[in-house]
């Protein structure tokens, strides 16, 4: 089982490496969206500092959601997804492999570049650290929940907009506690509670989302 997960991971990472452009594009999208906000609301430092956690998290949500189109759809088109369903390994394991590689390609880069963007918004050091930690715990949840949405909308017409409609409302708790943790540091109350809850969401979605996604994939292939 672990071997099968390893193979899916290896294959998807190799494919992502051959198509580096897609990964870079999602990252550039994130940077652009975040950079547009000061242009929209004005360059006043204190206001930007207040907005920064929300802006960064919303942009992360959108970037993650956009990259969901790459999770199953290409495999669905060329028939490799069909073969995965017939792999003789539990589908949940293979789904897990795909979700991990999706996070490594879409979530992790956001975590790494977020401090840089936080500096643009004049976030202090401790807030930057909490921002990174919250993204580190929160973005895997986005990939996990997103995998359910991507599987449900597989091969459906207008799936790009539909997946946003399905997934974004489910992202609300992650957004609240992700952005809230940074805000809590700024207001001096400490971010532990927020981060613990984010961790709880991660645990819950780790347990449930791969099953839901696997079930949705089987339904989609019928």
């Amino acid at each position: 089982m672990i071997r099968a997960l390893g193979w899916v991971l290896r294959r998807d990472l190799l494919l992502a490496f051959r198509r580096r452009g897609d990964v870079v594009n999602a990252l550039v999208f994130f940077v652009i969206v975040v950079s547009l906000f000061p242009l929209g609301v004005g360059p006043e430092a204190s206001q930007l500092r207040n907005m920064a956690p929300g802006v960064l998290w919303v942009a992360a949500l959108l970037a993650c959601m956009l990259s969901l189109a790459r999770l199953y759809a290409p495999d669905h088109q060329d028939g490799t997804l069909e073969q995965m369903l017939l792999a003789g390994e539990p589908l949940v394991v293979l789904v897990m492999g795909k979700v991990i590689s999706h996070w490594l390609m879409s979530g992790l880069p956001l975590v790494l570049i977020a401090p840089l963007l936080g500096l643009q918004f004049d976030l202090p050091g401790d807030a930057l650290a909490v921002l990174c930690v919250s993204l580190l715990i929160g973005t895997p949840v986005l990939s996990l929940i997103g995998a359910v949405g991507a599987a449900l909308t597989l091969g459906v017409r207008g799936s790009g907009v539909l997946v946003a409609l399905l997934v974004l409302p489910l992202y609300v708790p992650v957004l609240i506690f992700g952005a809230g943790s940074v805000g809590a540091v700024a207001s001096g109350t400490g971010a532990e509670a927020h981060l613990m809850l984010l961790g709880g969401f991660l645990a819950l979605s780790l347990v449930l989302a791969p099953w839901a996604s696997a079930a949705a994939l089987r339904i989609a292939m019928e």
Binding site: R11, L14, L15, R18, R19, Q77, D78, G79, T80, E82, Q83
Partner: peptide, 10 residues
């Protein structure tokens, strides 16, 4: 199946 199940980039 109908589809060859080949990844273009591999």
């Amino acid at each position: 199946g109908h589809l060859n199940a080949l990844k273009d980039d591999l």
